[in-house]
Design a binder for these strands. Structure first.
Length: 149
DNA sequence: GCCAACGTTGGC
DNA sequence: GCCAACGTTGGC
């Protein structure tokens, strides 16, 4: 089993939305590296940190679990969606998504707190210029964060 | 709102 | 295949 970090802008989809919905389709990912993580490495049962980005208090706010493996992202076929991709075909979908289910909310572990912990220094989220919305989390990093809670 | 960093596009 | 231009991300 692997560990992940999933970014979401709370103005678009927050941990409270996740808690209300219980499960959600992680659609709208339009980056090949992130897609490949979902397609090639994410498995049902993998756990992920739910991270609020581009907001007043960026940081980790919850835990979710992969509950359905990668399948075609429906929004790529929807001409009215901002995620529409005219080059994507039903027979050859370009974009995939997994589904995730809510596990629990946690206290905010803010970005600046993460930065203060040496064992977390290599986390992708802390590297400058990081933009990937799905990143692997090392098991040791995961364990360290769980102890902070 | 600014702007650095990054991924993608497209002309050549 | 190179690389400049462009659009997006996301912390500040």
């Amino acid at each position: 089993m692997r560990y992940w970090l999933l970014k979401s802008e709370p103005s678009a989809y927050s941990i409270d939305d996740m808690a209300r919905d219980r499960t959600t389709t992680w659609s709208g990912v339009r980056n090949y590296q992130a897609r490949n993580f979902m397609r090639d490495q994410m498995r049902v049962g993998d756990r992920a940190l739910f991270y609020h980005s581009n907001c007043e208090q960026p940081g980790i706010v919850g835990i979710v679990e992969v509950c359905k493996p990668a399948h075609p992202d429906e929004s790529q076929f929807d001409a009215r969606s901002k995620y529409y991709d005219r080059d994507a075909k039903r027979g050859a979908p370009r974009w995939l998504n997994v589904d995730v289910k809510f596990v629990r909310k946690i206290r905010l572990v803010a970005l600046d707190e993460l930065r203060r912990h040496k064992p977390l220094a290599r986390m992708r989220i802390l590297q400058r210029g990081n933009r990937l919305s799905i990143t692997p989390v090392d098991p040791a990093e995961w364990a360290f964060i769980m102890k902070l809670l």
